[in-house]
Design a protein around this nucleic acid. Structure first.
Length: 951
RNA sequence: GCGGAGGUAGCCAAGUGGUCAAAGGCGGCAGCCUCAAGAGCUGCUCUCGCAGGAGUUCGAGGGUUCAAGUCCCUUCCUCCGCACCA
């Protein structure tokens, strides 16, 4: 150990020592195992501060568990399947200036190296090497024998096996799905390809088909239940409609709607134009209620929205009510309508607490909406919809649906109506236009014959719920997130045309989508160690069936694959030992996707005993308050952070900057201060090791050892809950502060003992520096040493109380001196009179019996003849004590009750120290016998709070 | 719209109904050390106070309680996810 702290030298030394001694390459043994995994990083860039955080948290847990005596497996792989790497290769190849800039400047890749990574394969190769190197220089305790990349031929065999299995279980099915589509590029549009309208989502309307002789007039609605309250349809006389053949039916819709229909999975053929006013005045049949209703003119109907034909529900839709009212007295004879349409009776179908029978009418009155062109009409609509959605219940008008909550009806009713053949689904953007990067306006296209993982299957979800119920979710608050997302998850398209990956074995035109191939790969880590023993071709389905599922026999697998029986047996027993995953720790961005699929696939494929045990989530990292971006910057790579500050400092900082799902912020000023603290720790350790042993244990040593036990307990408790910030704060910063006080108070005797514990306490966070110090202290390998356990025998409440009195008294003295601004010539301290201590103890005892009140306390006290001497002072003091005790921690109460220490001697032990600080001699008396007390200050002395006289 | 997380001092942030005027850190100020700078150490950092005290604070407004940053209601604001994209 050198006098000067040189992080890079120490870190390199210990990293190579760890590698040489293979201590992070576990094999099954008699110990209890702990299998921790972290989602492998995607290889379209260098690892950055966000990875640093997630992986460091994982490494801390791995190291902590190892020091608790677990046999820990912490493996790592790399993710490369999907489209981004292919896209990146294209960008680099065509020397896109922005891409070159970002990868050169932010990902720190030299230009000449960029020239050599122009294909997806080269990119994967390059970044995987970089990533492994980065994880090594920061000291992660990973078993690198198990490393793999998702584009490896062996891995593809594993994915092929998995998908064949899922297919045979009917978990992969064919279907259609709406996607954002660019008609110009003839491709689905991804998020980053959108120029305008990136917030638009796809909304599914229910299309209800009203009948007009041979034609159907479809009306799009988000609230299909209102079909029971339709009084008429609305058609805008000014817009052009068209008659189209849709799957053999004759529909009349707006021209715009026709354009949208062309991209759906329906067969659409344009027949003729139909003017709006030709329709008005005709009667159509409501396909649900069979009632006959009139088509009326309305200006608010837009051709862009839905089908361009709207059903009117004046009882519940303010616009409909207003439009009808606006027609009062209008001359509609040119449409052949002679009746007064404004008197069409309203049909109520929803009961809601805020309104009467006709919510739309009430809302229009409430907001004083004038007519359908009044902007307040929109407001009224939103209000009614919101209230009906949340609090509305369907009435008898809706027949068998009566009594259902409005919020639950949509899916049920839509399904029923589609089954009856009177409705369809119509997709629409939530806002428009949505514009592609190429400039074209996007549409919604039905992708047909797509392969789906049918996550929506209720029995599958049920299993996931069961799994979740038995899992430890860290932090516990996010459990509800998982439950909600499981509920929300629909079927997921799992195949696509482009990108890297594995082909769907039974339909090789498709590539397995990259989230689908990353679900149960934790089990592959067990196999990955043996890859040099066989070729990809040998990895037949029987191999996986046996090794991962226990199906078949080693002999039959061996015969089929040519792999030795011993190896096959070995892999199976490895699997049985290591599985399930004990902890998966991840960034919060993966909750609604990867982590969910991780659970779905595990419950589908493995028996319950191999389902995951725990998931821990952490937040992102920003840079000086700015969000990081892989593709635009700013970004801080793991490598550059370690280069600048060293691995231990980087780790310690990132761990201490935020807790759990909270986002961390990387601030240069703070990192530098962490760096100084670590250096200080090193120097302190160096000095302690080089110092002579000094025998006698004094009060202050007892105090320090007692604090240390407290820090150990706090650190362990924090680590058990994966609160790395709290753990680091106790194990490092608080303990450092304790040490400062200890040193200041002249403590020395316990230094070596403390340091020995301290390096083990800190080892999960800053392993290199701890190894370096540990080596000097004769600890063989700190990474394998036992994590400290708090020793109850070293907890010394008396010492802590004494030290507290000293610190409090000193603080009081300094405050007085500061206030009166004199240089003290004489300072006298008076500790509490004995009777006050007795009062305090009595009061605490009563409090513990829950019997503390002024009257009882006074009675007890006055019953004691010895006390009565102080009769007139007692009530006031007792009152004060009662208030003090109200909020007192039980621990402190116990201490005050149990411990009988002498305040005078406690202060005397620190007399020299206190004198030194205030630069004045100190005299100490008990208030029972004040030697010198000109102002009778001693009467203010109370337990734990000596009185002070300064002149 | 749906679902989730938040609003605490100049900034970041901890905070279990009572040691909360509120941990820790950053920044700032002062002192010590030094030829000096840096580092380190010590103290201060809501307001007032020449005796250890008092007053006003935790987005805003109500309420429950002997006691509220913490519990309840209302309200304002911010951030995140909503899919075929890793």
């Amino acid at each position: 150990m050198k006098e000067r702290y040189n992080p890079h030298e120490i870190e390199e030394k210990w990293q190579s020592r760890w590698t040489e001694s293979k201590i992070f390459q576990p094999e099954p043994d008699s110990r209890e195992k702990f299998f921790i995994t972290i989602p492998y990083p995607y290889l379209n860039g260098n690892l950055h501060a966000g990875h640093t955080r997630t992986f460091t948290i994982g490494d801390v847990v791995a190291r902590y568990k190892r020091m608790l005596g677990y046999n820990v497996l912490f493996p790592m792989g790399f993710h490369a399947t999907g489209t981004p790497i292919v896209g990146l290769a294209e960008q680099i190849h065509k020397k896109d200036p922005e891409t070159i800039r970002v990868y050169n400047k932010l990902h720190e890749i030299p230009l000449e190296v960029l020239d050599t990574i122009q294909t997806p394969e080269q990119i994967v190769e390059y970044f995987s090497i970089q990533a492994e190197a980065a994880m090594k220089i920061i000291g992660f305790s990973i078993d690198w024998r198990r490393r793999f990349t998702t584009t490896d031929p062996h891995y593809k065999k594993f994915i092929t096996w998995q998908f064949n299995l899922l297919h045979s279980m009917n978990k992969v099915v064919k279907g259609s799905h709406p996607v954002r589509w660019c008609p110009n590029d003839e491709n689905p549009v991804e998020d980053h390809d959108i120029l305008r309208g990136e917030d638009a989502t796809i909304i599914d309307y229910t299309l209800i088909k009203f009948k007009l002789s041979d034609d159907l007039l479809p009306c799009a609605t988000l609230r299909p239940e209102t079909v029971f309250g339709v009084t008429n349809l609305w058609v805008n006389p000014k817009i052009v409609h068209v008659r189209v053949k849709v799957n053999g039916e004759s529909w009349i819709v707006s021209r715009e709607a026709y354009e949208k229909l062309r991209f759906t999975d329906k067969k659409v053929e344009l027949i003729a134009e139909v003017k709006g006013d030709e329709l008005i005045g005709k009667k159509v049949t409501n396909p649900v209620t069979n009632s006959s209703v009139l088509i009326l003119p309305a200006s608010f109907v837009s051709p862009d929205n839905g089908s361009g034909i709207v059903m009117s529900v004046p009882a519940h839709a303010p616009y409909d009510h207003l439009a009808l009212r606006d027609l009062k007295g209008a001359d509609l004879t040119k449409y052949g309508i002679n009746e007064d349409v404004s008197s069409i009776p309203l049909i109520s179908l929803i009961k809601v607490p805020e309104y009467g029978k006709y919510p739309a009418v009430d809302a229009v009155k409430e907001l004083k909406v004038k007519d359908q062109n009044d902007p307040k009409a929109e407001e009224a609509t939103k209000l009614v919809y919101r209230r009906e959605f949340h609090g509305g219940v369907l009435t008898e008008t809706t027949g068998k649906y009566a009594g259902m909550a409005v919020s639950k009806i949509k899916d049920v009713l839509t399904r029923d109506l589609i089954e009856k053949g009177v409705a369809d689904v119509f997709y629409e953007f939530s806002e428009s236009p949505v514009v592609c990067r190429c400039g074209a306006t996007c549409v919604i296209k039905m992708v047909e014959n797509q392969w789906f993982l049918n996550y929506s299957e209720p029995s599958w979800k049920e299993q996931v719920y069961t799994c979740l119920k038995n899992m430890n979710i860290i932090p516990p608050e996010i459990r509800v997130d998982f439950e909600n997302k499981v509920d929300w998850l629909k079927d997921k398209a799992c195949a696509r045309r482009k990108g890297l990956g594995t082909r769907l074995p039974w339909d090789t035109a498709w590539m397995i989508e990259s989230l689908g191939d990353s679900t149960i790969y934790m089990s592959y880590y067990i196999i990955a160690k043996y890859l040099d023993k066989f070729t990809p071709e040998q990895l037949k389905e029987e191999f996986f069936n046996y090794c991962l599922m226990g199906k078949g026999t080693p002999e039959s697998v061996s015969e089929k694959t040519g792999i030795g029986v011993d190896v096959i047996r070995r892999i199976r027993s490895d699997f049985e030992y290591w599985y399930p995953v004990d902890l998966r720790t991840s960034g919060k961005d993966l909750i609604p996707n990867h982590l969910l699929f991780f659970l779905f696939h595990h419950v589908a494929i493995f028996p319950e005993m191999y389902w995951p045990r725990a998931i821990a989530i952490n937040g992102f990292v920003s840079l000086e308050g700015q969000k990081m971006s892989k593709s635009k910057g700013p970004i801080l790579t793991l490598r550059s952070a370690v280069k600048e500050y060293g691995a231990d400092v980087t780790r310690l900082y990132i761990l201490s900057s935020a807790e759990h799902v909270q986002d961390a912020d990387w601030r240069k000023a703070d990192v530098e201060s962490t760096s100084k603290q670590v250096e200080r720790f090193y120097k302190l350790a160096y000095d302690i090791i080089k110092s002579e042993d000094t025998g006698e244990i004094k009060l202050i040593d007892k105090w320090m050892l007692s604090r240390l036990q407290y820090r150990i307990r706090e650190t362990a408790d924090a680590l058990n809950r994966m609160q790395t910030r709290r753990a680091v704060q106790n194990a490092f910063y608080m303990l450092m502060n304790d040490m400062k006080w200890y040193e200041r108070r002249g403590g020395r005797a316990a230094c070596k003992q403390i340091l020995n514990t301290w390096v083990r306490l800190m080892a999960p966070f800053t392993p290199h520096i701890c190894e370096e110090i540990g080596e000097e202290m004769g600890i063989d390998m700190v990474s394998l040493a036992r994590f400290p356990v708090a020793d109850a025998a070293l907890t010394d409440k008396g010492a802590e109380l004494s030290e507290e009195i000293i610190a409090n008294t000193l603080r009081d003295m300094e405050e007085i001196i500061r206030l009166i601004r004199i240089k003290p010539k004489r300072i006298v301290l008076y500790t509490s009179a004995e009777w006050k201590k007795q009062v305090l103890k009595k009061a605490i005892a009563m409090k513990k019996d829950n019997a503390l009140d002024m009257k009882t306390l006074m009675n007890t006290l006055m019953g004691d003849p010895a006390m009565r001497t102080y009769g007139k002072d007692i009530p006031k003091f007792a009152q004060k004590i009662i208030t003090d005790i109200q909020g007192m921690e039980p621990d402190l109460m116990d201490a005050l009750l149990d411990v009988d220490f002498d305040e005078v001697s406690a202060l005397n032990e620190a007399r020299e120290f206190i004198s030194g600080v205030v630069e004045c001699n100190i005299e100490i008396y008990s208030a029972d016998a004040p030697g010198y007390d000109p102002q009778n200050k001693s009467r203010f002395a109370s337990p734990m709070r000596p009185a002070i006289y300064i002149e």
